[in-house]
Design a binder for these strands. Structure first.
Lengths: 219, 219, 219, 219
DNA sequence: TATGAATGAGTCTTCATTCAT
DNA sequence: GATGAATGAAGACTCATTCAT
């Protein structure tokens, strides 16, 4: 429903031009919207075509099937997530500071755009059948663990962090404490009778998350 | 599809008897199976009727609609989760030990039965529209925070835990580090080219989770 | 389009009753019509539902798929063809007379109803994919060769027929000379600039066919 | 799908040259392939373009429509069939021998290439709507009846054949006994639980067909 | 001349829900 | 209560044909 981080779909008044790349991108953007809002099963091809101002047949022309389109959307979402992480340049700053930035960045990325979470949840509901088809997804993630390893090593060397931490498990936990809050925000709000969606609630959680992770990493 | 922790659907040889409660329970059990495996949109009323050995009309008789059935399933799943937590009697043991048990219990509950996770993810995809209808859900969760508050207080008093921790945020984080691992197990396995579903991988994660939380709570 | 031999579809003013057998039969009759007129690919499920005065979903309820329906139609058409052949009681009459009757009956059956030909042609276009699924089709045809064998044997014994004829090949040839005329009646009419569809033309062909077969069987 | 008698589609390395006739021929050859394999309704314009290594627009440029293309394919198929018949020079040899050759030639032509049968069957399913548009089809067939008339006359004069046979009916019967076997080969194989597609089965049928026709023509 | 993106009217099929029996 | 036939509104996907480039 809300993907403000994505550049707006180029509308071009009717979209009747023969613009291969443009059409494909417009479709993918509309699909991200639709799938994030309603999941794969709940997402409608018709609605995607309408949002993208594109003929329904074009979706099949460009992506082959609803499944093919979903995979394209997933890959694109991962790509955006990982490439924006790359811009942090964490190796240039002190370990503690780097860790704070990483945790905050992770948290903030979910504040800005929850569509990634929605896609992942739905994909896991289906056992990652789409993602497994991807040729590129695994290699997209190798830098991620490298970064984590380096930060932990540097922090361990200077005595800021424990030295017995597994980078992958740690990364998963860092993601978890932010991700879970947002992925389950509606049910959590309901069972605790709060509104976790407010700006204030976000700030509280953000503080807690940074504090918790840093505290956990202390030697 | 796999809910071994759930008592098997009572089969009752053809189910032609007029056992009002039994029928309703059989339907709910079959629905839990179906919705956990395929989500709300992907779940089929026909399949539920078949699994429950019950006429389709019975579903509408007992639960009104597919949505009504889904809510019943959700409430039941929460009920099971919370009531089994109650059996831990954490107030009888030392704070550190109590915390370890709680974390392990949370993790293990997901190992035994992932259907709860599936239901929650799907429900969040839909903005918790079903759960919001529930009259009972919030009150089911008040003991939960009470327990957490007490453990943290006792641990704070004796110097085992930090004293500045918010019980709700802490509980969410404890849930998060276990939940996220299982809710995202398929995509995580894919992007990291591991099999997080193995018994060994579970054991590794369990160890990490307990260790991380305890470490984070230290003063 | 034209299946006058079939009993007319029971119309029952709207067909809204819960009549399992009746509905299934109405669907099959409408489908025979449609598929005979337009082939499998050209046949439309929508049109069949409309002709049968039945909801489209009923077709799937009763026959599972368009393919399943086509097979049901095929089996039914074969059944009608073979069972009406059975009524001839050829073993009660002299061999020559029996052969004449069989040839005439075969020819006349195509005059009365060309839908069988249409179905078979179309099915052969698809390599008999549907018919191969049938459990009953082969056993429906064992009496057919038995009959032919007996007639040829009786005719051979009394000196009316040659004794070196293979019953199956002979049956195929008898079918061929009538079938081909009707199966290719439109193209033949076009290339020879005649109207083979007229009553007169039928009579001429019928005479020729009987004469040719009898002549070929002479010792 | 299988038209070994047809010269292979000229490939011409990507087919980007402006070879008007070559393009048209390549399209027609690919269309023959496609329509013979799947019928008119089942045939796909996209697939034809792909097989012919030609742009889809070219098909419309050269043949106007799918129907126009189908007619071109039909005319071409008839042309090939009739012109190869012309090479037999049956008027040079004894009537009995000529008849044997004609029957064998007819049978063998179907063994070599079944696409003609497929096209005719499908065309008859549609009432020969395409063929009726043809200007040339009728005149292509006048030599055919002339030949038959002459052979029968010569055979009648020398006492080899009956003298009361109609050439057109006889020609149709000769075509029928071979054609039907191949046009219905899949359903016949299924109902009789044989494989009529084997080389051996072909030989048996060929023998029967020649024998049957010769026997029928005896005075 | 040649390309392939774009269109719109279908196609088969599914499914929650109702209701006659 | 219980059954399952019946309904209608989609849903994913296809395809002959057109047309901007």
């Amino acid at each position: 429903m809300t993907t403000p981080a994505v550049p707006p779909v180029p509308q071009a008044a009717g979209r009747r031009t023969r613009d291969r790349a443009g059409t494909a991108i417009a479709i993918r953007a509309a699909a991200l919207d639709e799938f994030a809002a309603r999941g794969f099963s709940g997402g409608r091809v018709d609605r995607i075509a309408e949002k993208a101002q594109v003929n329904k047949g074009m979706i099949y022309h460009h992506y082959g099937s609803k499944d093919g389109l979903y995979l394209a959307v997933l890959e694109y979402a991962y790509e955006r997530a990982r490439s924006s992480e790359q811009t942090l340049r964490l190796d240039k700053i002190a370990p503690r500071e780097a860790m704070v930035r990483l945790v905050e960045f992770t948290f903030d990325s979910f504040v800005k755009d929850r569509s990634f979470i929605k896609l992942l949840n739905d994909e896991n509901l289906h056992g990652a059948v789409h993602l497994k088809q991807s040729q590129r997804i695994a290699e997209m993630h190798s830098p991620l663990l490298d970064n984590m390893r380096k930060i932990l090593a540097r922090g361990g060397a200077e005595g800021t962090f424990r030295t017995d931490l597994d980078p992958m498990q740690t990364w998963i936990s860092i993601a978890a404490v932010s991700y879970f809050y947002f992925s389950n925000i509606y049910t959590l709000s309901t069972i605790f009778r709060r509104d976790f969606n407010s700006r204030k609630a976000h700030a509280v959680r953000r503080q807690h998350v940074v504090d918790l992770i840093l505290s956990a990493l202390k030697p």
